[in-house]
C-alpha cells in the first residue's frame, strides 16, 4: 500500500522531539515521527526500548518532559495562544483524548459493565449521544467485530480474544481520528491472536489511521505501510515493511529481527 492521494500525505499525528524520563532516567531521547492520514504504522523494537511510552505520549497518558505532539493540527495538552503554550485543564485534555482511541495489552474493559455498556458509556457521557444513538453504535460495532451475540455479556464471561475485540469496538465508538494499539495480542492465547489481528487488518483496509506496537512481525509485514524500529529510546530506522524487515540498514535492526523472526 502506498500513500497517494493529496489528503493522505498530510500528517495527522506528529511528534516533535519527544523526551521522557522516569525517576531521572531518560527513556525517550527526543523522538520525532509523523503519521499520515489513513496510514498504518507498526512500532517494533526490543523490550524496554520505549515503544509503549512513546505511544502513551501521543495521548498524554504519559506527559512528555519535552517536545510536542500534534493531532490533526491541535497541540495535545496545550493551548497555543500567541507564542505561549498554556497547559490545558483536565477536562480539556479529556476532550482531546476522546479523539484518539487506545487499545491495551490487557484489554482494560470495565468489569462491572456489560459489553454494550462498556461501548456506550463514553459516547453517552462524553459525546452526549442519546441512548438510542449510542446503542445503535454499539450494536453496529459489535457486529463488525463479530460479537453481535455477546452484546449483553459481562467481560468475565468472554474469552481474551473476545474481550479485546470489545475493547476495539469501545474505542471505535468514539469515532477516533487515530487508533493506538499497545501489543493488542500479547496477552492472548495463540489460538485467539488471529481473530484480533484480522479485526485490526480490516480497520487498516478501511482507511483508519493506526499506530500499532507489536511483536507480530508477520502482521507488520502484512498490514503496515511503514515500520518504525526503536531501540533504547530512539528511532533507529523506519521504512516500508518490505525493505525494513527484509533488508534492514542497521546492525541493531538486523540483530533484533534475527531474534524475533519466526
Amino acid at each position: 500500500m502506498s500513500v497517494t492521494s493529496e489528503e493522505n500525505t498530510q500528517a495527522i499525528v506528529s511528534l516533535h522531539g519527544i523526551r521522557k524520563s522516569f525517576r531521572g532516567t531518560e527513556v525517550l531521547h527526543g523522538i520525532s515521527l509523523e503519521i499520515h492520514r489513513g496510514e498504518t504504522v507498526c512500532l517494533i523494537g526490543p523490550s524496554g526500548s520505549g515503544k509503549s511510552t512513546l505511544l502513551r505520549c501521543i495521548n498524554h497518558l504519559e506527559v512528555p518532559d519535552d517536545g510536542l505532539v500534534t493531532v490533526d493540527g491541535s497541540v495535545i495538552g496545550y493551548r497555543l495562544s500567541g507564542d505561549t503554550l498554556f497547559e490545558l485543564g483536565k477536562r480539556e485534555l479529556a476532550a482531546q483524548r476522546a479523539s484518539m482511541g487506545m487499545v491495551f495489552q490487557n484489554f482494560n474493559l470495565f468489569p462491572h459493565l456489560t459489553a454494550r455498556e462498556n461501548i456506550v458509556h463514553a459516547p453517552r457521557h462524553v459525546l452526549g449521544l442519546s441512548p438510542a444513538e449510542a446503542d445503535a453504535r454499539a450494536e453496529q460495532l459489535m457486529a463488525r467485530v463479530g460479537l453481535a451475540h455477546k452484546l449483553d455479556a459481562y467481560p468475565d464471561k468472554l474469552s481474551g480474544g473476545q474481550q479485546q475485540r470489545v475493547a476495539i469496538a469501545r474505542a471505535l465508538a468514539m469515532r477516533p481520528k487515530v487508533m493506538l494499539f499497545d501489543e493488542p495480542t500479547s496477552a492472548l492465547d495463540p489460538e485467539m491472536v488471529q481473530e484480533v489481528l484480522s479485526v485490526i487488518k480490516d480497520l487498516a483496509r478501511e482507511g483508519m489511521t493506526l499506530v500499532v506496537v507489536t511483536h507480530e512481525m508477520r502482521f507488520a509485514a502484512d498490514v503496515a505501510d511503514r515500520v518504525v524500529f526503536m531501540d533504547d529510546g530512539r528511532v533507529v530506522e523506519e521504512g516500508p515493511p518490505e525493505r525494513l524487515l527484509k533488508a534492514p540498514a542497521h546492525d541493531r535492526t538486523r540483530t533484533f529481527l534475527s531474534k524475533v523472526s519466526t
Binding site: 497518558l61 476532550a95 487506545m102 482494560n108 463514553a122
Partner: peptide, 12 residues
C-alpha cells in the same frame, strides 16, 4: 488500567 482506559475514552 481502568483509569487509563477511562482517560483514553475522554472521561474526565
Amino acid at each position: 488500567g481502568q483509569r487509563q482506559a477511562a482517560a483514553t475514552l475522554g472521561l474526565t
